[in-house]
Simulated assay, not measured.
Amino acid sequence: MNELIGAGVALVTPFHADGSIDFDTLGDLIEYQIAEGVDYLVSLGTTGETATLAQEDRKQVWKFTTDKVKGRVPLVAGIGGNNTAEIVRQVQAFDIPGYCAILSVSPYYNKPTQEGIYQHYKAIAEVSTLPIILYNVPGRTGSNIMPATAVRLAQDFKNIVAIKEASGNFMQFSEIMRDKPDDFLLISGDDPVTLPMMALGAVGIISVVGNAFPGKVAQLAKLCRAGNYAEAGILHAQLLHITELCFVEGNPCGVKYILQQKGFGKDYVRLPLVPVGPQTQQKIIDELKKIDRF
């Protein structure tokens, strides 16, 4: 799965004021990502506000994205949830060409056991015609894919090819790297820890801040892949505070405001999310001025 090596960006879903999808801005954003050198794009992950999109909305976004990209970069589709039977149905029904893998978040809210998590992904793997990326984000799901479970899934199902790890637990990352099959990929799911994770053996990042700074994120991943951690550290430091501001009032609220400042649509989000407040807006503006000096 060389398509998943390097910098991936989890695209936002731009909206109009009435909550409808702003496809013009989405198209402009996709062109920006490709021009700036990202390695692949993720359509409808967490950052895409997928939880607030109806299934027909999702199909339209996936189709628009693949039609716009036209094979220039690999695409990953986000399909995940806490109703295993429904996710299996959605994976079976997914027939949009142009995608190389499915990113599937661990079941949230239900708080399944490790065996429940295993059986959930087993059911998906048995019907999927595309490779699967596990997505572990305990801060959102309320449960953790333990390293032994991730490794067990990787060993038992050849089409489970990677894990996007956003637990923030370096012991967990280390155990995955120690025990995983050679061809199973560890991918950073948190922008601030991409550099140290890649030093440990991760192959890249699925980024949020990359929506606004795709060139910097792509270069950071490239430098880490080359083992040039000194130069990568400079980019890491430049992006550290703006990344923090992306999340201080919820994702993708912060990065959508940054995109608005850069001329990519408006910062509209769907409830229960709301745009960032005036204090965060000013902090973002101040930080953008600093970054522009580099």
Rank of each mutant, 00 (worst) to 15 (best):
I291Y: 02
I160Q: 02
L195E: 00
E56N: 15
P192W: 00
N251R: 09
I163K: 00
I145A: 14
G263V: 06
D67E: 15
T65M: 04
E175Q: 15
C224M: 10
A150M: 09
I291H: 04
L41G: 11
G71N: 12
G204I: 00
P214L: 06
A199W: 05
K68M: 10
S104E: 04
K70W: 08
L240E: 11
K68V: 06
P252E: 05
V161M: 12
L259T: 02
K111P: 04
E175F: 03
T194V: 13
D28R: 15
I133R: 01
D292N: 15
C246G: 00
E115M: 05
L239D: 11
V42H: 02
S143M: 13
Q55T: 10
L273F: 06
Y229T: 06
S188A: 10
T52K: 08
Y257T: 09
M198L: 06
S20F: 07
T66R: 13
I160W: 07
K216I: 15
T113W: 04
Q119W: 08
Y118W: 09
T66P: 12
A54T: 14
E126H: 10
P131D: 02
I124V: 14
V76R: 00
H236R: 03
Y229N: 05
T280E: 04
D191W: 00
G81V: 12
G81M: 04
G250S: 11
G78F: 01
V76P: 00
T46D: 00
D156Q: 11
M146A: 15
P278Q: 13
G215C: 10
L75M: 13
Q33C: 11
A93D: 15
V61H: 01
I176W: 05
V217K: 01
L134N: 01
P138L: 11
K266Q: 14
D18F: 12
G48N: 10
I117M: 12
V208R: 01
Y268V: 15
K111C: 11
D18T: 14
F247I: 10
I96Y: 01
D57E: 12
G6Q: 06
P131Q: 03
N110G: 07
K158G: 14
